[in-house]
């Protein structure tokens, strides 16, 4: 192993005294304070800040229009063009979910249903939003393009039960999504 000798920088007298550096620091923080009070902190415009510092005053101000396409908010189930539940309850999301927030009870589609060919759909589908960490793995793993992370981020509830999104609620949030792979048409 080769040894590399690193030469430490020579300290000048003022460096060693430490005091000039303290005053430099005080001057720097003072400049920031002045800018902050005048509402001219660096980046305050881009971040749509409240004026004091660069902090945005939530919930009066929101950043919704700045949210990127790929923003990972509340996970939800979607239906396709024909209002068919895309989820076939393969339970891969339940398996992959790191905090175990997803609970699925699979069920069979009755034979008189229009989509009886698909055979399977979730009987119950619950996502516990107190557990969800918005990692998006469920969306990534889904073989049926049935679960998506929406842009909603304000998830609130007064009880634990309220924080569990059941199947009905998940479809409400998710809504309809068009233009996905159409796997279950009559020819296939």
């Amino acid at each position: 192993m080769a040894f590399i000798k690193i030469k430490r920088p020579e300290l000048s007298l003022s460096d060693k005294l430490y005091i000039p550096a303290i005053f430099k620091g005080l001057w720097l923080t003072f400049k920031h304070a002045v800018k902050s009070v005048r509402g001219k902190s660096i980046g305050s415009k881009d971040l749509a800040s409240s004026g004091l510092g660069i902090t945005m005053q939530y919930p009066e101000q929101k950043w919704d229009e700045h949210l990127p396409e790929y923003y990972r908010g509340v996970p939800a189930l979607v239906t396709d063009e024909q209002d068919r539940e895309r989820c076939v309850s393969c339970q891969l999301c339940e398996f992959i979910c790191p905090p175990k927030a997803i609970k699925i009870i699979p069920g069979e589609i009755p034979s008189d249903d229009e989509w009886a060919k698909v055979e399977k759909r979730p009987k119950e589908f619950e996502i516990d939003m107190t557990r969800c960490i918005y990692c998006g793995m469920c969306e990534e793993v889904c073989p049926e393009q049935a679960i998506y992370l929406r842009q909603d981020y304000a998830v609130t509830g007064l009880t634990r039960e309220e924080m569990v999104n059941d199947k009905k609620r998940l479809y409400e949030i998710g809504g309809k999504r068009v233009g996905l792979v159409n796997k279950w048409n009559e020819l296939k």
């Binding site: 309850s89 393969c90 339970q91 339940e94 398996f95 699979p106 069920g107 069979e108 055979e119 399977k120």
Partner: peptide
């Protein structure tokens, strides 16, 4: 056992 649970669980 049909549609009851995935075997990996």
């Amino acid at each position: 056992f049909r549609f009851q649970m995935r075997v990996w669980f």
